[in-house]
């Protein structure tokens, strides 16, 4: 029996900054909260193809599992948690004050 499809987001690194980004309904965001949550496998496949087509802006596109905390997607694995937050030894990366940008 095929495994049921669990909620996912599409994530990658930005080509220019290298920063972790998430695909939204309209583009990409640096914040997991803004990500488009995919609950349907066929739709996810389609969105992956669209994401991978943007090779001049993003690197290493893949699907990451999330669980929903109300409306907000949160990572299921600690690696994705660190990607969404930044390193633990300095308040660098996403922890630095930065207004949300779109690429």
């Amino acid at each position: 029996m095929p495994k049921p499809f669990t909620p996912k987001v599409i994530t990658a690194n930005a080509l220019l900054e290298g920063d972790v980004i998430y695909q939204t309904l309209t583009g990409w965001s640096r914040s997991l909260q803004d990500a488009e949550v995919l609950t349907d496998e066929a739709h996810a496949d389609l969105r992956m193809i669209e994401a991978e087509a943007q090779a001049d802006a993003v690197v290493g596109v893949y699907l990451a599992d999330v669980i929903m905390d109300g409306d907000v997607p949160t990572p299921t694995h600690f690696r994705e948690d660190f990607r969404a937050t930044g390193p633990s030894n300095y308040a660098h990366g996403k922890q630095e004050l930065r207004k949300q940008e779109h690429i």
Partner: peptide, 10 residues
Amino acid sequence: NGLYLQLHAY
């Protein structure tokens, strides 16, 4: 040329 792409950045 020594340039990696890591978790949060190059």
